[in-house]
């Protein structure tokens, strides 16, 4: 595994602060590295962003088919999809989907935030690595405090590593009281 990714698994809970654009690419790179290359069971829990967004980006990354073409097949009912000039490489597209089905990558999203996530969903998860995007939604939409949430994350028994994503702006507004291992990615 690349050294920069290995470091992310040193602690039970790691916070990644993405200082520049490119969070989605980085999450995709992690999914590919952890799950496809190293066979870790990796779960992306997307809070506030639909998992289909990551799904499309992942298919594009793995198949080499441009995102804008995949989008037209994943969302055939959008205005932009109605231009029928763009046809997809059927074999490549379906094969990539089947590779993802057979991989150890799992994703879900939720736009409903409540204590259920912390109290019921997380304790039931069996993962090598759980990626949560993003910390801000996780904390602000929950009734639990930051300290309580981190305590509960650290106590999960069936998840080996938890990686949370944030950016500078969110990190500043959260004004975290405790010290966590924060990995900074990108330049100021």
């Amino acid at each position: 595994m690349k050294d920069k990714f290995k470091e992310l698994l040193d602690n039970k809970v790691t916070l990644i602060n993405v200082k520049e654009r490119g969070k989605v690419d980085l999450i995709l790179e992690l999914l590919e590295n952890f799950s496809i290359k190293n066979n870790y069971k990796t779960y992306l829990f997307s809070l506030g962003i639909k998992n289909t967004y990551y799904n499309n980006a992942l298919i594009s990354k793995l198949s080499g088919i441009p995102k804008k073409i995949i989008q037209k097949y994943e969302y055939p009912y959008l205005g932009i999809s109605k231009n029928n000039k763009d046809k997809i490489d059927r074999e490549k597209y379906i094969k990539t989907i089947e590779n993802i089905q057979n991989s150890n990558i799992y994703m879900s999203d939720t736009i409903i935030f409540n204590e259920d996530i912390v109290d019921y969903i997380l304790p039931d998860m069996h993962e090598d690595i759980l990626i949560i995007d993003n910390l801000y939604n996780f904390i602000t939409k929950s009734n639990y405090s930051e300290t309580e949430i981190f305590k509960k994350l650290n106590k999960t028994k069936m998840i080996d590593n938890i990686i949370l994503f944030t950016n500078n702006k969110q990190l500043e507004s959260l004004n975290l009281k405790n010290n966590y291992k924060i990995v900074e990615i990108g330049n100021d």
Binding site: L44, N51, T52, Y54, N55, L58, E74, I94, I97, E98, I100, Q101, N102, I105, Y106, M107, S108
Partner: peptide, 10 residues
């Protein structure tokens, strides 16, 4: 095929 990352997808 629409949600290949769901647990039930395999």
């Amino acid at each position: 095929y629409l949600e290949p990352c769901l647990i039930s997808s395999k």
